[in-house]
Simulated scan of single mutants.
Amino acid sequence: MFSYPFMQNAYMAGTLIAIISGIMGVFVIARNMSFLTHTLSEIGFAGAAFGIFMGWQPLLGMLLFTTVSSIGVGELGAKSSRRENSISAISALAIGLGILFLSLANSNASYATGILFGSVIGISRQNVIQMVALSAIVLVIVALIYRFLKFDSFDPIGARVEGLWTRTLSVVFLVLLALSVSVAAQIVGSLLIFILLTLPAAAAKYFTHTVGLMIGVAVAFSLIGVWLGLYLSYVTNWPVSFFISVIEVIFYLAALLYDRRRG
């Protein structure tokens, strides 16, 4: 399996994706941003389609759309009492724009499938290099603001009382989340990336009691899901996103069962 360059690229990219998703997912869960993550994934689809329409690499279009939209969507969701309906409307608009751009670009079904559900064979060495650069940016910034981000995510009231720069932290986190969505969608697909950004962390919180351990378990769940999903996709020729989804759901259900028995 590893004699094929496309599988080497897929595993290298998948490992980066799993690490980033596991780390960011812990803060997504803590900040109750699961629905926003779903919205950003759909915005990423529109961005990738726009990139194809413009003749760019899909990743560049995703970065443009998700980065610009993340701050506005986050502000809308944070202040409006009708946030779920408003964000749903934005999701619908993003999907519609994505379909429009694909149609205008005269792209065939394989393009749409790759964008929506990911593609193992579509990962090139250049894609891996881009992912390494973006992942490094995310990891370095998270490391720099980790203590403040942890405080604001798990004790927002205390963070405000202490005068922490919560507004700036929120903006930075949204941009990091947009970068994570754009990176991870290369394999999992733009419409299913929220699975890796939510389920591993949601399962991890039932097994741990500290933020550091939660991040470690979430990364482990993500790595197992991605690695095993890639292998099963190679063996069966089925979409890798299907296997990753099933594996992460199994982890989450196991976590719920564990919590129920312990309780």
Rank of each mutant, 00 (worst) to 15 (best):
G98R: 12
A13T: 03
S70C: 01
S3N: 15
F251K: 11
I215N: 09
A218K: 09
L196P: 08
S88M: 14
G55R: 06
L176V: 05
M33K: 07
L59I: 13
V235S: 12
A30V: 01
L93C: 07
P200I: 03
F50E: 00
F65K: 02
L149H: 08
L139R: 04
A46W: 02
W238T: 13
A13W: 02
I123Q: 09
Q57P: 10
P5I: 13
A133E: 13
L197R: 09
K205Q: 14
Y234H: 06
L192N: 03
E42R: 06
A255G: 12
R125Q: 15
R31A: 06
I141W: 08
S91K: 00
L144Y: 12
R31F: 09
G212N: 14
M62N: 03
A203K: 09
I20N: 01
I250M: 12
I123D: 10
I23S: 11
D152A: 10
R83Q: 14
I95S: 04
S88H: 10
L213S: 15
S180Y: 04
W227E: 12
A185L: 05
I187E: 06
L213E: 14
G72D: 09
L63V: 05
V246F: 11
L191Y: 04
G118K: 01
M7Y: 15
I52S: 02
L164Q: 05
I121M: 14
S119T: 00
V128N: 08
A178K: 09
A202S: 14
I87T: 01
L116S: 00
S153N: 10
G51I: 07
V140H: 02
H209D: 15
V120T: 00
S86N: 14
L169A: 05
Q8G: 10
G98W: 05
M62E: 01
T198K: 12
G163D: 03
V120R: 08
K205S: 14
L199F: 07
L177T: 04
G44K: 05
T67W: 01
G72S: 10
A202C: 07
A220T: 01
N32R: 15
D152R: 11
Y234R: 05
R31K: 12
V161F: 12
L36K: 01
L199R: 05
V161W: 07
L164G: 01
E42F: 02
G114V: 02
G216S: 13
Y146S: 09
A49K: 08
Y11P: 06
F65A: 07
F2C: 10
S153Y: 04
L149R: 02
A184S: 14
V181S: 11
A94M: 08
G44H: 06
F221L: 04
S170D: 15
I123G: 04
V161G: 05
A204K: 06
L139A: 00
W238Q: 13
R147C: 10
L256N: 13
S233Y: 04
D259I: 08
I137S: 05
S34W: 02
V240I: 12
L199D: 01
L144I: 14
S241R: 11
Y111N: 13
K79S: 13
L197Y: 11
V120L: 10
